[in-house]
Nucleic acid binder design. Structure first.
Length: 603
RNA sequence: GGGCCCGUAGCUCAGUUUGGAUAGAGCGGCACUCUCCUAACUUGCACCAAAUUGCUGGGAGCAAGGUGAAGGUCGAGAGUUCAAAUCUCUCCGGGCCCGCCA
């Protein structure tokens, strides 16, 4: 509810200081330490305007300002104006939270649609820890945007025409081994072997190339068989995704892009003179886009090839067309069929040869969650959109980049198999074992399993989410699976405590009076939730919520220790504390939901 | 050659967009809170998770909870500003990108 409080204070402040509301709003913050509940640095700006000292100005502002009843009083501390919140405000806050419940912190419904594309893993290997970072980041961003009021569509791009898939398919056909166990893992392990053969044996190379060509011609027997293999592999990968609460709305296959929308897209680019066919030089015979903006000026050759001289599309070429489709610029439509029913109750669809038309795509904003090493091609896509006159779409093409997960000194390589031992499934199993060891012995059966899976999944998600995306993560088992300190279980535990009290004694009465320090601190944290959601949504940074949920849990634990709730002798105080407890419970649950951490009622 | 990202406590990281008061957490280490053992004493106190008996001294131990203290040239330097971890410039260290690969 901070946003509402801030708006009111900004109005009063700008009236008193005689300046802009926006500036007044920007000057308002929740300070740390004991400087007041809300603080403004407005006096610095106003003082300059009025030719006074900031301290003098602050004194004057504090005396003059017409305060809403949410504020008890304002005081000047040196050049700052600090506001002390009133019992009326805290009572309002409690009533608001208890009333809104799972809607507490939500933003207003917005127009338009945002597509979030993630994690787009090659369909010939299992997800490893690095892929999981992408998936968890994309998933959390999607949850946060949805909560903040946006209409979100989760898309996964399946590259079923790549060399990697052809290699794996060749191995599947020729190595004479039958798939055992989880298909994605089997394919991944086999791919390491095929890749070795591919590099050392020219004959294998030739066969793989031929196979790739056959796959690219959609009608061939090989193409159909390869597609089936790819679909099975993605289904296996999604078993992993579901363990971590990650779901999608639709899968778009590269082969369908080539078959259904590519032609129209290229015609559009040609018609807008965005691309041209080179007749001489090293790119002779290729269709290229000439990237002329400043960002590309330092490059040796700012021409981006979209169609090779042999007439096939480059990766970037297909990506450009795909991006055009995401914005609804291309009119050709995919056919869709159901891919699978997901454990969250929603069906996930896929583009396919046959099926019905559905309303996917046509977004107003597109967020591609892709590693930062792809910054350049992503920039090229934006530039090409701009070149053909879609400036707004270019502006709304967002590359949500993140750094990779590292193994001490090595990177993950599908080809070299350095991922073996670090799959998302293995991480999850280790997490389960670790979680099991912490659960009290008297918890048994289904309940025990439920706690263990929630802790393993939530713990790993949190470990990957708490760091800002642009920082690389060096993977260490102990840290990824840490259940102490800055971790999901810490938050989950605080929630379970609050729930226990709630289930025993109810939600009390939302009336605040004679608040203790710990009660105030907790209420102020609860108040800040909408601000954090707004920031996280605007900046596309889920780690802000990870931080917030830790602070909230800490504030709750301090409150819990300092203020007896159920056993409180004064009935009025008891009712108030129950209300604070219930409000904290709601705030914790909502924050956890945005991170994809299950809010258990018992641990 | 050009460009992007990172550098904050021993370790792992928030804070940098939007400049504002003493730079925040977690881990590890230290001292408590808690449990057990042991020796002596006996007055009060005990509310929510856990437990059903505890408290003080000595010893040992557990920790998804709490408390306290310790730990900092914010990579270096300069500039802008009333004010710089935050903005600008230069430099240092690390990573990544600039393919008719994917």
């Amino acid at each position: 509810m901070f946003l509402r409080l801030r708006a009111r204070l900004a109005k009063a402040l700008s009236d008193a200081a005689g300046c802009d509301v926006g500036q007044a709003e920007a000057s308002l913050a929740i300070p740390k330490g004991q400087f007041g509940d809300v603080a403004s640095s407005m006096a610095f700006h106003a003082a300059k305007k009025h030719g006074k000292s900031p301290a003098e100005e602050a004194r004057e502002l504090a005396g003059k300002i017409l305060l809403p009843d949410w504020v008890d009083y304002a005081k000047a501390d040196g050049p700052y104006v600090n506001f002390i919140l009133s019992d009326a405000f805290y009572s309002q806050l409690l009533a608001h939270v208890l009333n809104e419940k799972e809607r507490f912190g939500m933003g207003q419904k917005k127009q338009g649609k945002t597509i979030v594309e993630f994690p787009s893993v090659n369909p010939n290997k299992p997800w490893h820890i690095g892929h999981l970072r992408n998936a968890v980041l994309g998933d959390a961003v999607a949850r946060i945007l949805e909560f903040s009021g946006e209409n979100v569509e989760r898309i996964d791009y399946i590259d079923d025409l790549g060399l990697q898939v052809a290699q794996s398919f060749w191995g599947y056909l020729n190595l004479g081994k039958k798939p055992i166990g989880k298909l994605d893992l089997w394919l991944g392990e086999q791919y390491v072997e095929v890749s070795r053969r591919f590099e050392s044996d020219e004959n294998v190379q030739k066969q793989v190339r031929e196979l790739l060509k056959a796959i690219e011609h959609g009608e061939s027997k090989e193409a159909k068989e390869a597609r089936k293999l790819v679909e099975s592999c993605v289904a296996a990968q999604y078993e992993t995704a579901f363990k971590f609460g990650i779901y999608h709305d639709v899968l778009i296959f590269e082969s369908d892009i080539v078959r259904t929308i590519f032609q129209e897209g290229m015609e559009l680019l040609k018609a807008n003179n965005a691309i041209s066919k080179e007749t001489e030089g090293k790119n002779a015979g290729c269709w290229v886009a000439k990237l002329q903006s400043k960002e590309f000026s330092g490059m040796e050759s700012p021409d981006k090839i979209l169609i090779r001289s042999d007439g096939t599309a480059t990766y970037t070429g297909k990506d450009v067309i795909f991006q055009l489709w995401k914005f609804g610029i291309i009119k050709s439509e995919f056919a869709y069929s159901r891919f699978m029913h997901q454990p969250n109750g929603h069906d996930c669809y896929m583009s396919s040869h046959e099926g019905r038309k559905m309303g996917f795509g046509r977004a107003t904003r597109v967020i591609n969650v892709i590693g930062m090493e792809q910054a350049y091609p992503q920039k090229a896509i934006r530039e090409i959109l701009r070149l053909i006159g879609f400036a707004k779409e270019a502006e709304n093409s967002i590359h949500l980049s993140y750094e990779h997960v590292w193994l001490q000194d090595a990177k993950f390589s599908g080809r070299q198999g350095t991922w073996i031992g670090y799959t998302a499934d293995e991480l999850y199993s280790e997490g389960l074992v670790k979680a099991e060891s912490k659960i009290k012995e008297d918890v048994v059966g289904a309940e025990r399993g439920k706690i263990a899976t929630a802790v393993a999944s939530g713990g790993i998600r949190f470990a990957l989410l708490k760091t800002t995306p642009e920082k690389k993560i060096v993977f260490r088992w102990e840290e990824a699976l840490s259940l102490e300190g800055d971790s999901a279980p810490y938050v989950m535990y605080a929630h379970a405590r609050a729930h226990k009290i709630f289930s025993k004694a109810g939600e009390g009465k939302p009336s605040a009076k004679d608040l203790a320090l710990q009660e105030k601190e907790l209420l102020k944290k609860i108040m800040a939730f909408d601000l954090v959601v707004q920031d996280a949504a605007k900046q596309l940074r889920p780690h802000l919520l990870a931080d917030y949920s830790l602070e909230l849990a800490t504030a709750y634990n301090k409150f819990y220790n300092a203020c007896p709730i159920i056993g409180c002798q004064e009935e009025e105080k008891r009712q108030m504390r129950l209300a604070i407890n219930a409000a904290a419970l709601i705030a914790m649950r909502n924050a956890m939901g945005l991170l994809g951490i299950e809010a258990l009622e018992k641990m």
